[in-house]
Design a protein around this nucleic acid. Structure first.
Lengths: 113, 113
DNA sequence: CAGTATCCAGGCTGATACTG
DNA sequence: CAGTATCAGCCTGGATACTG
């Protein structure tokens, strides 16, 4: 196990770097893991408001994690997809998921006492 | 790579479960990786206020991630240490660190354009 | 359908002052 | 040293209404 020797180089979830620590980014990434999805296909399962979803998607697009493709149809159709860079995040996120799946009961038990 | 099939079971950083997504928890854990540390040994390198550090430590203690040991001396001496449970978090956190170390430049470049 | 535009509450966070 | 108490600002996130 190797942890960044410089603890304060913003390599961890806190706010600064990537928005891993925010409420929605990671969930959106996982939502996109099986292929492109439309705005409405994200908003429903995530139970997020349009405003917040838009903000999150824009930020992730700026960071190069996803792409936004608008088709000039009526009604409009917009698809969001992971970039190769965004896709590389699936692995560390899976590690977090695995940890939670394994240890959530222990945490909840500790919290109960 | 295996991701939790139930996307909404709070297995990801968002707020709900473990405080992985908050600003300080992960940094505190990494700070404690080499052994117990005193309150003041955390507050200085983390550049956190006493109030926030106290709140974070209490929450982590409730969750069973750290222990708090107060020695009845004068001046007082309190040590915080990772529990075995807390220690298991080092591995997934290292994965996040590794991702950031590897891809931070790409993100910053995307953000700049 | 895929957003924008406002407004607003609550939580996180920090600064400052004080205590056993 | 290791906190607690209080106050205040910011920002995230949500509710609601409206638009091309």
């Amino acid at each position: 196990m190797t942890l960044d020797p410089d603890l304060f180089s913003d390599c961890l979830p806190g706010r600064p770097l990537i928005r891993i620590g925010d409420k929605w980014t990671t969930k959106i990434i996982v939502c996109l893991r099986d292929g492109p999805r439309r705005f409405g296909e994200l908003i429903v399962p995530l139970r997020i408001t349009a405003k917040v979803l838009t903000e999150s998607l824009r930020a992730m697009e700026r960071d190069g994690l996803i792409t936004r493709t608008a088709y000039d149809t009526n009604p409009p159709r917009v698809e969001y997809a992971l970039t190769p860079l965004g896709r590389t995040l699936l692995e560390p996120l899976a590690a977090i998921c695995a940890w939670t799946a394994a240890h959530q009961p222990a945490v909840l038990e500790a919290r109960a006492t």
